[in-house]
């Protein structure tokens, strides 16, 4: 049958922003669920005597050294990313292409640095996923977080290309991009505290 002519454009309702918020909620549940399982394993671990620290939970093998400096730098980097992403929103709202591009560029650079820091942590720890329960869970949790960071990097690239490609009215996309980085930072705060601080 013949199609009717398309309807006129309905009033936009921040579809990308809402979609990003929903995706953020899903991602937060992913990390939240994984941290909960981690804490359950940690709580259920038997107690053993450590030469250095007395009686401790037999969870993280004593020989493992987690590079905390890199983890802390990741956290700080993500806080700065939030500022940069918000700077991009501020500039985009004022139709300032130069500063929007600069802010999105710094965001991408810091995102790359965070992913690089995670890879450095894996390399410096020098353990394999097949060495035990702690190891496999460490790789699963930090791997999931890294995948989310990669998705944030892709989001930054998409926002930058679309905005700098001429769609300067797409402030909502830049705002949604900032929201996604806020979510990623919150998720990494949980990972940082549970895995890198509490271990």
């Amino acid at each position: 049958m013949l199609a009717l002519p398309p309807a006129s454009q309905p009033a936009p309702r921040r579809q990308v922003f809402v979609g990003t918020a929903v995706a953020g909620a899903a991602g937060f549940m992913l990390i939240g669920g994984m941290m909960a399982t981690w804490l359950k394993f940690r709580a259920d671990a038997p107690v053993r005597e450590s030469l250095k620290r007395g009686f401790i939970k037999d969870w993280m093998p004593e020989k493992i050294v987690v590079p905390e400096v890199a983890a802390n730098m990741m956290l700080l980097g993500l806080f700065v990313i939030c500022i940069m992403a918000q700077w991009a929103v501020y500039s985009a709202k004022r139709n300032d292409r130069t500063h929007t591009g600069l802010a999105l560029g710094v965001t991408a650079l810091l995102a790359l640095a965070s992913i690089n820091a995670q890879i450095a942590i894996w390399a410096q720890m020098g353990v394999g996923a097949n060495d035990g329960a702690f190891h496999s869970m460490f790789y699963a949790a930090t791997g999931a977080m890294t995948a989310l960071l990669l998705s944030g990097l892709v989001y930054t690239a998409v926002a930058a290309f679309r905005y700098l490609g001429g769609r300067t009215k797409e402030v909502e996309l830049v705002s949604a991009h900032a929201l996604y980085w806020y979510f990623l930072t919150a998720a990494f705060c949980a990972v940082w505290f549970v895995i890198y601080v509490q271990k």
Partner: peptide, 27 residues
């Protein structure tokens, strides 16, 4: 929304089980 909140927990748990099963079989 219920699926969006519950399904990631299932995915995360399955990811743990997958990595453990494939590499360590310890936990």
């Amino acid at each position: 929304l219920a699926v969006i909140l519950a399904m990631p927990v299932l995915i995360g748990t399955t990811l743990y089980v997958y990595i453990d099963h494939r590499y360590a079989r310890a936990g």
